[in-house]
């Protein structure tokens, strides 16, 4: 009976998507970029006139990150990202609250594995370095604060799996606090300097250089630290119970 209902509901929904929704969206690949705001965002000309952007040549554009997705995420629609950070933040707090409400406060223990422990010593610094690389180069290459922070948290997870005594200390919470507040403070600094919340108030430099794009790398670094600390807390909450 349940299955019949399920097929019915899914069928009605699919019928709606294919019959009603598919005709109104453009066919795959035939997108008119000119009609979308993305066109001006790619050319970094939402406030100025249109000029083709060239890698390593264009200077002092309104937004300096070579990765256009990053320039949308952390510059044009930075406010969304602030919300996104808050979603993750709330989810982490929720996991903390719910894990502390569990009745069986038993820590998950296991026998250590020597091979894993020794190889963790070799791999862990590389993992942390790679995570930091991802979020520092977020405005130049694919990546950014969220993947970078996740990579760092995975390093912490590896440490936790290889080492029975390892505990995430309160430092993670302080990191989370200062990184989260740092993001908002950067926004408020934009308000103090340029009069608008979350304004990019630093010079944007040459497209493709490490020191470019104004506040974007700084914000991504904050996000990286915050996400790393947050996910480490989640992992630790789930383990400690």
């Amino acid at each position: 009976m349940r299955r019949v209902w399920a097929i019915l509901v899914a069928g009605v929904f699919l019928y709606f998507l294919v019959g009603q929704f598919l005709p109104i969206i453009p066919t795959f690949g035939n997108v008119d970029l000119f009609a979308r705001v993305a066109f001006d965002i790619i050319n970094k000309s939402t406030t100025t006139n249109y000029n083709a952007v060239e890698f390593k040549k264009s200077k002092d554009l309104e937004d300096g990150s070579a990765n256009v997705v990053t320039s949308i995420v952390v510059n044009y629609r930075s406010f969304d990202t602030l919300g996104e950070v808050s979603v993750l933040f709330c989810a982490a707090i929720g996991v903390g609250i719910l894990a502390s409400m569990l009745k069986s406060k038993k820590r998950i223990e296991f026998e250590e594995h020597k091979v894993l422990r020794i190889s963790t010593g070799i791999v862990l610094p590389l993992i942390l370095l790679f995570g930091a690389y991802i979020f520092i180069h977020g405005h130049l290459s694919p990546g950014g604060g969220f993947p970078g922070g996740t990579t760092i948290a995975l390093g912490v997870l590896l440490l936790m799996l290889s080492n029975n005594e390892f505990k995430v200390t309160n430092v993670a919470k302080y990191v989370e606090q200062s990184a989260g507040a740092g993001y908002v403070v950067i926004g408020l600094m934009g308000m103090a300097i340029g009069g608008v919340f979350l304004m990019n108030f630093l010079p944007t430099g040459v497209v493709g250089n490490l020191f470019s794009a104004g506040v974007v790398p700084i914000v991504y670094t904050f996000i990286g630290f915050k996400v790393g600390a947050e996910l480490s807390n989640v992992i630790s909450d789930l383990r400690e119970g």
Binding site: V37, D40, I41, T46, T47, N75, Y76, R77, S78, F79, D80, G190, G194, V196, F197, L198, M199, N200
Partner: peptide, 13 residues
Amino acid sequence: ILEVGKWPAAYGI
């Protein structure tokens, strides 16, 4: 109206 980050309404938020 406040255009967050000084981006005009249709581009930014």
